[in-house]
């Protein structure tokens, strides 16, 4: 596979992995909650799937991925409801989309690839990174604040920083479509950087 094709494939997997979680990036805190939950459950589920690795035939793979990720996310969801219930409340709906997200990731990685765990970890770290950038940007634009609801995640140390006072300012940035617009802008910036680098060479 030539590198151009490889890059395109990696981009596709990243965007596919991001999409179900995008809407949760309306504030930095909910982006962090969902991102970490996705990272932890992805690692746990991939660990189990990697351990089962050579037992699994292609036909069984999809079924296994869906069942294992669903169970792992259900366990994580219970733990969040018990010990981080405020954060769970704001991100709750999107946690249940994590299995869909992980199934997409696994379908697009080679079945018996060595270092499955490492690839999933790299990918999910990228997802967390993008979610955080988008959470920061959307919260700043839409709400004029940073770390809204931070107490939910890190207790009394969390303090909301107000950048400017608005009444839910730019509502579009906070709503789910704002997430896709933000992702589009982010991709545009990245492509621009990449293009200017190739031109420089």
């Amino acid at each position: 596979m030539d590198t151009r094709n490889e890059t395109w494939r990696n981009d596709f997997v990243l965007v596919a992995a991001l999409c179900p979680l995008l809407a949760a990036s309306d504030t930095l805190v909910s982006a962090l909650t969902v991102g970490l939950a996705a990272l932890v459950s992805a690692l746990a589920a991939s660990g189990i799937i990697a351990a089962l690795g050579h037992w699994l035939e292609r036909d069984l793979r999809f079924l296994t991925v869906v069942l294992v990720t669903t169970l792992v996310v259900a366990i994580l969801d219970l733990m969040l409801s018990a010990w981080f219930h405020v954060a769970r409340q704001s991100a709750g709906l999107y946690l249940l989309l994590i299995p869909a997200n992980l199934a997409l990731v696994h379908l697009n990685t080679e079945p018996h690839a060595r270092g499955l765990l490492r690839r999933v970890a790299t990918l999910m770290l990228a997802v967390v990174g993008v979610l955080l950038v988008m959470g920061l940007a959307r919260e700043a634009v839409g709400r004029g604040s940073v770390l809204h609801d931070a107490q939910a995640l890190i207790g009394s140390h969390g303090r909301e920083i107000t950048l400017f006072r608005v009444d839910m300012g730019f509502l579009l940035a906070m709503l789910p479509p704002g997430a896709f617009i933000a992702l589009g802008l982010l991709l545009a910036v990245r492509n621009w950087l990449r293009a200017s680098r190739t031109n420089a060479q």
Binding site: I48, L52, W55, L56, E57, L60, L63, T64, L67, V68, L71, V72, A74, I75, L78, M79, S81, A82, W83
Partner: peptide, 23 residues
């Protein structure tokens, strides 16, 4: 593979029940 899959799922379901109990 089916046995391995069933065993893994049974273990996960047991973990889910345990977590549901303690939470």
């Amino acid at each position: 593979p089916l046995i391995a899959l069933a065993a893994t799922l049974a273990a996960l379901v047991a973990a889910l029940i345990w977590v549901a109990h303690i939470t």
